[in-house]
Structures are given as C-alpha cells and as structure tokens.
C-alpha cells in the first residue's frame, strides 16, 4: 500500500495472491468441516464457530483500522489514508454483517431463537449500525477533503465507543440469569486441535480481508484520481491575462 501514482492496471501479483489464498480457504473449510473433531456437547454445531469467530475477530480489526486510517488522514491529510479508511469500513460492515448471520445460524439450533442478547453479538449489531452511519455521512458530502475529515471523525468516535459498548453489554448480561450461551466458546476449555483450526481459519479470514482491502484501495485510488481529474479538467491552468494586479 504505497502512495505510487495511480496504478490503473491491476497488477498481476493480486491475481497470484488470490490464487494462493483460494487453496488456503479450501484447507480451512476442510479442517473446520471434516478434519476437526465433533464437540462433546454441541456435536457438529461447533463447526459454525470456525467461520463465525474468525469472521467476528477480523470484523473488529477492520473497524479498528477504519478509525486508525481516519486518524492518520486527519493527521497527515493524505488522500490515500481516507481511501484506506473507507475500504476498511466496507470490510468492517461486511464482516460484522456476516458475524450476525453466523451468530443467528448458531443460535437457532442451540437456543431455538435467532437472536440472543449475547454481549459480543449485541456489540456486533451496534458495530453494523455505526458503520451504516459512517457510509450515510460519506454519501452526503461532495467535497472530498471535507468528506474524508468528517467520516474520519465519525469512525474515531464510533471506534472509541466499542469498549464501552462491550463492557455495558457484558455487564448487562451478567445481571440476568444466564439465558444465553457465550457465543465465542469462552468458559469452555477448548481442545488443542480445535484451537489450532480456529487460529488457521482466522488467518485465512485475515488474508481475505487483506485481499479485499488491496483491491478496494486500488479502486478507491482510481476513483479519487478521477474525481481530481474532473476538477482539474474544468480549470484552465494558465490565466490568459496573467496575474490581475489591483
């Protein structure tokens, strides 16, 4: 992710990257669905965890990086940081949405309900709402610099609320009789193989995030370039009458 001049052509290594990640994804799927043992209590349902937990973790990372790149933009004012921030926000929204789908998939057969007020799931839902707000704001501002600044501010304020949201949701739950099962398997001693598989699926989810980031940042750069070229194109660069002195 260097600030080179607009790489309009898609570099070949991006294709190679995906070709490498593809088999890893297949291996992760095999490990999660076939190779790993069944859970003593939950049987095959535990396999949802490998996708669900890894996606959730990367979703958090994505939202955190949205705020981090936003802060960098406010600090340095480089367009590239805004592009990276927005790209990471898209991934954050996607991964959070997938986390909720995963949580509901797991919750239905185990608890016979699609939604539980599990702390982490509640937090993810709030994250989705925060990211939707981020994109609504982005869509309302035409001036690219102002858009970058205001959306960076929204991202930072949103990210800063996550620890508080988590604490509140966690404490809130503990005051209820335990109606819900922690969806990350915490409190359950994890078999070594299971942990290994989970770490591997998380790495693969991270690589998928990174791949999408690279693609999206490249597109974002082109969009930014186009936007700037439009402004430039409408301007005659050399004043025919020279500097007006009065």
């Amino acid at each position: 992710m260097t600030d080179a001049t607009a790489p309009l052509r898609r570099p070949r290594w991006m294709t190679i990257y995906w070709v490498a990640v593809g088999p890893m994804f297949a291996i992760a799927a095999y490990l999660g669905l076939v190779a790993s043992p069944r859970d003593v209590n939950q049987g095959d349902l535990i396999r949802i965890m490998y996708a669900h937990v890894s996606v959730a973790w990367i979703g958090f990372v994505a939202v955190g990086l949205t705020a981090l790149f936003g802060a960098l933009y406010l600090w340095r004012g480089k367009r590239g940081d805004d592009v990276r921030s927005a790209a990471s926000a898209e991934m954050g929204l996607l991964f959070s949405a997938l986390t909720i789908v995963g949580g509901m998939t797991y919750s239905k057969p185990t608890l016979n309900t699609f939604w539980t007020w599990d702390a982490k799931l509640t937090l993810t839902a709030i994250m989705v709402a925060l990211m939707v707000g981020y994109f609504v704001v982005r869509g309302l501002i035409d001036d690219p610099v102002r858009r970058g600044r205001v959306s960076a501010v929204v991202a930072i304020v949103a990210a800063a609320s996550l620890p508080f949201n988590y604490l509140a949701a966690e404490w809130f739950r503990t005051l209820h009789p335990a109606k819900s099962v922690a969806l990350d398997g915490s409190g359950v001693t994890m078999d070594g193989t299971m942990l290994g598989v989970l770490l591997f699926t998380t790495v693969v989810a991270g690589l998928i995030y990174l791949g999408f980031m690279l693609e999206r940042v490249r597109l974002g750069r082109i969009e930014a370039e186009l936007e700037e070229a439009r402004t430039r194109g409408a301007v005659r660069t050399v004043a025919p009458e020279g500097v007006v002195r009065v």
């Binding site: 925060l130 707000g133 508080f164 509140a168």
Partner: peptide, 11 residues
C-alpha cells in the same frame, strides 16, 4: 439519531 444512538448505548 441514526448516528448518535449506537454511540450512546453504553450511556
């Protein structure tokens, strides 16, 4: 409200 309510949930 869309922007602020998710942030003030902990409050």
């Amino acid at each position: 409200p869309v922007l602020m309510f998710p942030v003030v949930v902990p409050i």
